[in-house]
Computed example of a mutant assay.
Amino acid sequence: MKTRARLPAAPRVGRAKAAIGGLLALLVLALPAAPAVAGDIRATVRDRDGKPVADAVVVVVPSGGAAGAGTPPGVAEEDQRNKEFVPYVLPVQAGTRVLFPNNDNIRHHVYSFSPAKTFELPLYSGTPTSPVLFDKPGVVILGCNIHDWMVGYIYVSESPHFAKTGADGKVTLGGLPGGDYTLRVWHPRLEGSEQATAQPLAVPSTGAVDAATTIGLTPDFRARRAPTPGRGGY
């Protein structure tokens, strides 16, 4: 009678190693992800009289010159309410598209002749279907061809690390990789150049660093708001 040859059994050591390897893989997947290492900048902007400056844009750029990766630019809004641009200062990253909704019950004619972005939105109400692309860093001054006092600013940043001060002149830029940076400040009434405000800053890998900037402000030469005849829905 012929007997069927048996296949050799797998070594027990090999099976044990495979089981341990699988268990370790499951344990690694179950462990919580390590928190991201990043630091914050607590910035304060004041004028020469020591008063807080609102609507100042604080920008930080790595000292190496590369702007670094950030959230991909999306879509922002520059509203028109009560015959004013809202917000007065809108900081965005280069590559951002901006919508210009008109929430007044009259029509506006928005335009800019700034080198960073020249465009025109003829008389309209509601929200234009296509946003405007701001792809070049710089300052864009907005105006309305109907209401002379309407002035607004879009600050287009080359860096993803920027923010605007509140009424207390303060703002926090969070989530920056630790390292050496250059901090700059811009304001619509800034006396002198933005580059003159540059200061080096070392951001810790964890925790926060304080940065104080004093700037001079020029007089506010905005046109005085005046009543406009309500003819033709303007």
Rank of each mutant, 00 (worst) to 15 (best):
L121F: 10
P128H: 14
A76D: 02
G138I: 10
V203M: 09
V156C: 07
D135G: 09
G232M: 08
R222E: 03
L142P: 06
D148H: 08
D148R: 09
G192A: 01
L133M: 14
A223R: 03
I154W: 03
G68I: 04
A38T: 05
G70Q: 01
T197D: 05
L133T: 14
F134K: 03
D104S: 04
T206D: 01
G192S: 01
G192N: 00
G207P: 05
L176I: 03
A25Q: 13
D79I: 07
V98I: 12
V171Q: 09
A5P: 06
R107C: 09
S193V: 02
F134Y: 07
V139P: 10
G233R: 09
A38F: 01
L31N: 05
Q93M: 11
L183E: 03
A163K: 08
R48V: 08
T129D: 15
A33Q: 12
G169Q: 06
E194V: 01
A16D: 10
L7F: 11
F221T: 09
V13G: 11
I154A: 05
A196Y: 00
E84S: 03
V132G: 11
A223P: 03
G70D: 03
G39Y: 05
S112C: 11
V92I: 09
G178C: 08
T44F: 02
P35M: 11
V53S: 03
P128W: 13
D47Y: 05
L217R: 02
T96L: 02
G22W: 15
L142A: 14
D135C: 09
R42V: 13
T127E: 14
A38C: 02
P137L: 11
V60D: 04
A30D: 09
A16T: 12
G95N: 04
D104A: 10
D40F: 06
S159M: 07
P115L: 15
A25K: 12
V140Y: 06
C144A: 13
G50A: 05
A54C: 00
R224P: 00
F113Y: 14
V98R: 02
G152Q: 11
A36W: 06
D47V: 06
L173T: 04
V45Q: 03
A5S: 13
P32S: 06
V61R: 01
S193Y: 00
G138W: 08
L142V: 10
V92G: 01
P188F: 02
I215R: 04
G166W: 12
